[in-house]
Design a binder for these strands. Structure first.
Lengths: 155, 155
DNA sequence: AAAAAAATGTTACATTGTATCATTAGCAAT
DNA sequence: ATTGCTAATGATACAATGTAACATTTTTTT
């Protein structure tokens, strides 16, 4: 799908939260939507400066990312301190907690929904030792199909 | 178990890798063994300086942590950029890939072994979209029993 | 003792993240 | 339109984290 169409949808999503998808926010989100990989705040600041010719300080990028995350348009990868656009911006669903497969070689990220039963199994294992799972977001270190091929990983 | 006994065991583990548990390494590992929480390299540098009166620069701490991790005596929490002592230093087993439950409130960490079948289920879900799981270490954001009580989380 | 390897020290710097206050833009109500 | 309010962004300074590179010391091996 076209980036612009996704951004328009994101704008509606903002409105539904009584907020605006401003020009700057749109730029940051566009950078993430166009990227296969997760990007850091500084990556995005560079992106805006180099590709768009607009100055955007890291401080602002952090704030914008925090905002976009708060309404579910982007996700933060805690293992990498980087951000990705939500894969379901156009789905208009109740954005669920996602799981991420992160290729350790090329850095590409795939957002997936792992089955509820698996999450339940994990949750039960956690409860068994007296803890409570409060965040279902998993980040898994993987090889993507391409990199697995190049590295000769056995199927 | 006494910290010293654990450290002695760790020393043997080092020997079995043809390496030494030097005084500095012992200090760093002791800091982790005594801590309920995960500690950053800088935390440990502070610990050595304040509690032991020995100077240890962060650069050295990083190297020591990397070494201890390479022989399985400590684990690195990628979501927090912090380190914990392996919970099985004295078990003398083949150290397996662990999973970590991290209390988001007090920061305490519990190392557990989630059942093989769960890992297998996750692995299969990953394969289904063409990725390969290369690291089974899970880090789960939790509430520990104490903090759950204080926060009134329903059992 | 000499050479080699392992371990640590030291300095400098790159990267990442936050605190704080200032400024600007958008909008509602008088 | 102007005042006043809030959202949004700019700007500066700094804190925290991590790494590169080379020097020095200690230990082991020959």
């Amino acid at each position: 799908m076209k980036t612009e169409a996704i951004l328009d949808q994101a704008a509606l999503h903002c409105e539904s939260h009584g907020r605006k998808l401003t020009a700057k926010r749109r730029q940051v989100l566009a950078g993430l939507v166009k990227s296969e990989k997760a990007l850091s705040a500084y990556d995005l600041a560079d992106y805006c400066r180099e590709k768009l010719g607009t100055s955007l300080l890291p401080m602002s990028v952090y704030r914008i990312l925090e905002f976009l995350q708060s309404i579910g348009l982007v996700h933060r990868l805690n293992t990498a301190n980087k951000y990705v656009a939500c894969a379901h911006i156009t789905c208009d669903h109740a954005h669920e907690i996602p799981q991420f497969l992160i290729c350790k070689v090329c850095g590409s990220v795939r957002e997936v929904g792992i089955t509820k039963s698996l999450i339940k199994g994990i949750s039960q294992a956690v409860e068994k030792v007296g803890f409570h799972l409060v965040n279902n977001q998993l980040e898994l270190e993987c090889l993507c199909a391409d990199c697995a091929l190049q590295q000769g990983v056995a199927q």
